[in-house]
Design a protein around this nucleic acid. Structure first.
Length: 462
RNA sequence: GGUGCGUUAGCAAAUCGGUUAUGCCCCGGAUUGCAAAUCCGGUUAGCCCAGUUCGACUCUGGGACGCACCUCCA
């Protein structure tokens, strides 16, 4: 039985879906005005893993990950670039898909864009207004009246008093309460036509939080199973989503809230504002995407994850070990696509995954299994290793291709390597070991490791 | 200031009230022309102080340190 750590209750709970056969899951995606960084990579990979495991567990999963394609930062960036927001956002949506694809992230079932759901948002705001939870402020914005919603703060564990005591709460006169947030922003003269929508409150555009409430209920219903996102979205974003959805629909919004930990650099959160971020495409110039995916899955999704070259190098070596085990059984017996869940390693793997998606433990099982494969030379177990890896979106490539791909794309030409191997084998046959060792050393200096075996000489990149 | 989370061996990172986590690194052995890979074995843990317990890294209390949220952020 699957257990999930629920932010709402702050403990692990038995997962019971609303519909026994199906799971409905929503994850907050990206605001598309720039390239995705490693923090975004973590959300995508983590919830991709969750998505895969739920499907593997037999559920019919509907996974929605939204795209925020209208907001202040987008408008500002488009103005800077002197381009339309549509052109800007489309470019970064395409880039996001490239990055996600590289990391082996499966496409969600729906990727709704905020700009395509404005009518639904307006309808929801009207509902909130009708219930007395929203009001038109003097400046023309429509705000949410936080103190009218019972239980505001239940997700983040904060009371309104605690929040007000915070030093950083901004004071604005057009809000009834400093914690009220914007549902609908009135248009400004200078804004482009493409960021203006008509409404009963006048021309404007949606606030950030309302899009998720509107799109989630449209695509998943008013009450669904799992809602995820980065830990920083807990407050205020997810708190506000609850206020909007439960305020408008008068029913429980989400049963299980999941939040992933941050990627850190030098022990500090990687973020746009700190400027200490690495984009996915930057990192992929240096490391194989599967290494990056493995690196992310190597830490528990709720724990902080420190980024550094040393850690990526370490991850690369660890993944090499798994692929090396697969390579030893390559070609022997066809790898079956299905996992034999009765087998001992698979059973351990499953119980690890069922324990709040403990990929760290699941990977430890894979290493134990790899050791067993090396020892037993069992093609059966190798197939099991491969298929368990595939559950996590790992180990799906040809082992030789992976091992020879190495960490850096460019390097010594393969034909040259082959020629050097031939030359070295000739030297070996002539018992000219000094020459043979010299060739091996030259290649090693280029990051190429030669491995002699009964079947011949293999090579791989460090 | 308020709230929450964390502190595990050289590095990374899990589980667990008593039994080898795991990966990388390091040491010894097997194997190899020598290596590499692999196998066998080994060294290095649980921030500090109390308490509960037959027994605590694991539970409770206190302290120190770190991180995060309270403002846009995955």
């Amino acid at each position: 039985m699957l257990k999930i750590y629920n932010t709402l209750s702050r403990d692990k709970q038995q997962f019971v879906p609303i519909d026994p056969q199906a799971v409905r899951m929503y994850v907050c995606g990206m605001t598309v005005y720039d390239y995705c960084h490693l923090g975004h990579a973590r959300v995508m990979v983590v919830f991709d893993m969750v998505y895969r495991w739920l499907k593997k567990s037999g559920y019919n999963v509907t996974y929605v990950r939204n795209i925020t394609d209208i907001d202040d930062k987008i408008i500002r960036r488009a103005a800077q670039n002197n381009e339309s927001i549509h052109v800007l956002t489309q470019r970064f949506i395409d880039a996001m898909h490239e990055d996600a694809d590289a990391l082996g992230v499966q496409r969600p079932d729906h990727e709704p864009r905020a700009t395509q759901y404005v009518p639904e948002m307006l309808q929801m705001i009207a509902q909130l207004e009708a219930r007395g939870l929203a009001y038109l402020a003097t400046d023309g914005d429509v705000n949410y009246a936080v103190r009218k919603f019972d239980g505001y703060g239940k997700l983040s564990g904060k009371s309104l008093e605690d929040l007000r005591a915070g030093e950083r709460v901004e004071v604005t006169d057009n809000k009834n309460d400093p914690l009220d947030f914007v549902l609908w922003k009135h248009s400004k003269e200078e804004e482009a036509e493409e960021v203006k929508w008509e409404s009963k409150w006048g021309s404007g555009r949606p606030g950030w939080h309302i899009e998720c409430s509107a799109m989630a209920s449209k695509l998943l219903g008013e009450h669904f199973d799992i809602h995820g996102g980065g830990a920083d979205l807990q407050f205020p974003h997810h708190e506000n989503e609850i206020a909007q959805s439960e305020g408008a629909h008068q029913c429980q919004f989400v049963n299980y809230w999941m939040h992933n930990g941050f990627v850190r650099v030098d022990n500090e959160k990687m973020s746009k504002s700190l400027g200490n971020f690495f984009t996915i495409r930057e990192v992929l110039k240096q490391y194989d995407p599967e290494v990056v995916r493995f690196f992310i899955l190597r830490a528990h999704y709720r724990s902080p994850l420190n980024y550094s070259d040393a850690h990526l190098d370490d991850a690369k070596k660890a993944l090499d070990r798994l692929y090396t085990a697969l390579k030893s059984e390559e070609g022997r017996g066809e790898g079956r696509a299905l996992v034999d869940w009765n087998e001992a390693y698979a059973a351990r793997f499953k119980s690890a995954m069922d324990d709040d998606f403990n990929t760290v433990e699941a990977l430890a099982v894979l290493f134990d299994l790899a050791n067993e494969v090396n020892r037993s030379q069992s093609a059966e177990l190798a197939a099991q290793l491969k298929s368990l890896g595939a559950v996590l979106g790992l180990l799906e490539r040809d082992p030789t291709e992976f091992l020879q791909g190495g960490s850096v794309a460019q390097g010594v030409d393969e034909a040259l390597i082959a020629a050097q191997i031939v030359a070295r084998n000739e030297a070996k046959l002539a018992k000219n070991y000094a020459e043979a060792d010299r060739i091996r050393k030259v290649l090693l200096a280029e990051g190429i490791v030669l491995e002699d075996s009964a079947a011949g000489t293999n090579w791989r990149r460090l």
